[in-house]
Design a protein around this nucleic acid. Structure first.
Lengths: 336, 336
DNA sequence: CCTCGATGTTGAAACGTTTTAACACCTGAG
DNA sequence: CTCAGGTGTTAAAACGTTTCAACATCGAGG
């Protein structure tokens, strides 16, 4: 069960010193072919597995990156993760995914552990914007899909204000003047930004701020979208919004489900715009208009910034991508 | 940047020995309150972060579980992962997710690394059924959503033969006699099992085996479903199946998209059954009939088996759950 | 006053690697 | 025959913890 066969056992079995075994493992070219074969045979025979803890303790390096994800069940983040992993892999590093599940406590625990593990770097989409938990502790950290407000670290984000503006401008152009924004909690910077963008769109169009009804949800998950749908339908028809801009696609899908379930039609009774343009958005009951973000590029860039962090003259950078509106059936012009 | 402040620095700063600092960290109750405060202050002040490598090297334990997932982008696996994480967390362990992305090479690399890291245990949904890569190397391994054929380790699975049977029986009852099965590759045990179940359903109904057309795909992803859809539509109408049983929901969603795109209606022109019943199945363009698996329970049970692995008189167990058919619009009885 | 047990603290030995500098040996040039 | 230089191997010193046995100190019981 627990073989616990170390480098010394291998050395003894092969009739060499442990230094030679280490050389076989790390610089095979430096050891004579015959010896090398003998050592490899011994390794095979004894079932030796190198102890990474010891290696890391001595060598200082760790060969792994970690990405602490806000919600592993949201395809948006797994797409970002793919970009991260591609970049990590190119640099010869492995990627560990950690799911904070929007729970500050878990997030803190994972960060603590990752710091203690001395991973090469941490990518994180944090729960709170300004969490003190991100204090500098020696391991480089890059913010993903969030903007670092202070200059203490790199970040890669997408212009959420612009995204909100694109979405709501589109709705206004389609003739909507009573619009709901569904999402939350407001502690999430992105929700605030997207709302700000929405308001900007209203002002650009000369509409009053209260043309936007904000329905705050507790999280950005499908179930919350369903709940919001019920709240929406509960409103008197005269005051009910004719369009909804959702904090992300999961919420939008929930809202969609709730609408059909309650006998309302999308987009006729309610137009819906999502956010992220996850693959499932196009496959939805009513294909979803959504704001697309360059997901994989986001991850890839974040990883690259992280890897550049160790360079001598490193300066923290804040990369910001542009979102893009993808129009589908859920916001088709409504019949008059 | 690299503080590299160790336990000895803390000790010196607090005027105690390193053993005492270690005690404060691991057995706070054993050290006098006054001393403890002093040490904690020093830790805080110096920004000390315990080095997990050294701790693990000495202590032998590692406080982390890993789940090597077949496809992080498939919500099925993230749901399973949630179950795993809940159970791990209850046992005071953290969970690292690794994405093999159906790539045997990546899988091998991750396993290697995890073995070297001496994680407490590994959960894996392997790429190949009988991969030699899973050779015993001292770290307990439990198979998730796969059945261990030999008795060398635990596994938690769902009865895929039964699942296939349920799905196809349902289609037959709806009057279909030309049925396609879309999925692959056949190297995946589950695909084979589900096909076997499908054939069993045919036989039970007195239909010939060639009532089932097997369309093999290269993977179980959305894009493959789309591709299969084109192949299906390419068939002459007289020989074209009237129903499709898909290897999983992603493939089914792809197929669905492809159908609408090509102007065919579901379920009228083609009935579709998926597998897994991920949350998006219910929200699809045409809500998807699917075979539900107890996802979180699968993960939770797997983690529990893994944790039991260290018990003295452990015997490997193979838990098998029952799937359940969830009928929705994608297989509504077709009009005559 | 002595002894005993309880309570806190500590020195030093691990844990399993990597690495450095030194060493032995050999070959070919002078 | 000697020596310079190359090639291959090694002894021993880290790396930063945890743990164990031993050591003070102190109050109470005899």
């Amino acid at each position: 069960m627990k073989p616990s066969v170390g480098i010394r056992d291998v050395a003894q079995h092969a009739g060499v010193s442990n230094a030679t075994v280490s050389n076989v493992l790390n610089r095979p070219d430096v050891v004579a072919p015959a010896t090398r074969q003998r050592v490899l045979a011994a390794i095979e025979q004894l079932g030796f597995v190198r102890n990474e803890s010891a290696r890391q303790l001595r060598a200082g390096r760790s060969r792994v990156l970690a990405y602490v994800v806000l919600d592993a069940a949201n395809p948006f983040f797994t797409d970002v993760a793919r970009g991260v992993e591609d970049a990590a892999r190119e640099a010869g590093l492995a990627l560990f995914l950690c799911n904070s599940a929007s729970d500050g406590g878990r997030e803190r625990e994972y960060l603590e552990l990752l710091h203690e593990q001395r991973v090469e770097g941490i990518l994180i989409t944090p729960v709170d914007t300004e969490s003190a938990q991100l204090a500098e502790r020696g391991t480089p950290i890059v913010l993903v899909d969030r903007e670092a407000t202070d200059g203490t670290r790199c970040s890669v984000a997408v212009d959420d204000v612009l995204g909100g503006e694109l979405a709501v401008t589109h709705l206004i152009e389609n003739g909507h003047t009573r619009i709901a924004m569904v999402g939350g909690p407001l502690s999430i910077q992105q929700v605030r930004d997207r709302r700000e963008g929405a308001l900007r769109a209203l002002r650009n169009a000369g509409l009053p701020d209260d043309a936007l009804t904000f329905l705050e949800t507790k999280s950005l998950q499908v179930s919350e979208g369903r709940g919001a749908g019920e709240r929406l339908v509960g409103l008197p028809a005269s005051r009910r919004p004719t369009a909804a801009f959702c904090g992300n696609d999961l919420v939008a899908l929930g809202l969609l489900q709730s609408m059909t379930q309650q006998g309302l039609r999308v987009p006729d009774d309610l137009a819906v715009v999502g956010y992220d343009d996850i693959d499932f958005a196009a496959a939805a009951a009513v294909p979803l208009t959504s704001v697309r973000q360059p997901r994989e590029q986001l991850g890839r860039t974040a990883a690259q910034l992280l890897l550049a962090e160790n360079e001598p003259d490193h300066e923290h950078r804040h990369v910001k991508f542009q979102p893009e509106l993808v129009v589908r059936a859920s916001t088709a012009i409504r019949r008059r």
